[in-house]
């Protein structure tokens, strides 16, 4: 692959008006570097569901479904490490602490059934999530990327990431995510109040307060009210 192929891809990125053609273009271009599959997604933190965070899904048929169904994201070393570093990395460089666990080895083993053996990941800033990652997968047993190819891949990843942000048409983004009541309930939770206390403060039944908390958790795809409070603060929807 030569540098001008990369800059040609960058040029084409500007003209893609939908994610489908962008995905096809990127897949076709990185095939020249030995990568057959890719995924661009928000990085799920514990308790968050992966599926709603996926922006470009170029994984082999069946693998994504299996990965989501089995909740592999919670144990996959590549996924866990993607939340912990800002720098591009080879999957083989994930520290043993996360890659050498039983769960992570099981995910890596299952992936080979779908022709995925090695890969390279590029973490990037995300507006709505902790951060995002563009992960490229290869059927080569060991992914060997020359420094030049690494540079080419990172450049394309960055422009793909920019294009995806430009295509997401959510200027109002998070604004309508929570109702005023849900925000109020989260604010009192942030102040350390139990549902029972909040129900007395707001003059609601405890059941109604719990219902609002549940709705807030669902809005962010998280498991606990504490996580929902953290998300709401991070997205500047509430100001405790």
């Amino acid at each position: 692959m030569i540098d001008s192929d990369v800059f040609d891809f960058v040029e084409r990125c500007r003209n893609h008006t939908a994610t489908g053609p962008l995905l096809c273009d990127l897949l076709e271009t990185v095939r020249n570097l030995g990568f057959e599959h890719l995924i661009l997604s928000g990085v799920p933190l514990s308790g968050q569901k992966l599926a709603p965070m996926v922006e470009l899904n170029g994984w082999p048929a069946g693998w994504f479904e299996r990965y989501v169904e089995a909740e592999h994201a919670a144990v996959d070393g590549v996924c866990i490490y993607s939340a912990k570093t800002l720098k591009p990395f080879l999957w083989s460089e994930v520290p043993a602490k996360w890659s050498d666990t039983e769960g992570s080895r099981r995910v890596a083993g299952e992936a080979t059934e779908f022709g995925i053996w090695s890969g390279f990941a590029v973490p990037m800033l995300s507006i709505h999530h902790w951060q995002s990652v563009l992960s490229f997968a290869s059927s080569a047993k060991c992914c060997t990327l020359s420094p030049r190819h690494q540079v080419q891949l990172v450049t394309m990843a960055v422009y793909a990431g920019m294009s995806i942000q430009a295509l997401s048409n959510d200027v109002d983004g998070d604004e309508g995510l929570l109702t005023d009541r849900e925000k109020e309930v989260l604010l009192w939770a942030a102040a350390g109040k139990t549902s029972s206390e909040t129900s007395q403060i707001l003059g609601l039944t405890e059941r109604t307060v719990k219902w609002h908390s549940t709705r807030a958790r669902e809005a962010f795809g998280v498991a606990t009210t504490t996580q929902a409070v953290v998300e709401a603060v991070r997205r500047r929807l509430i100001h405790p």
Binding site: I127, M162, I164, S168
Partner: peptide, 13 residues
């Protein structure tokens, strides 16, 4: 490079 998606989000080229 990490922050480049911010430009995309602003619809900047």
């Amino acid at each position: 490079t990490y922050f480049m998606p911010h430009h995309g989000a602003l619809k900047w080229r």
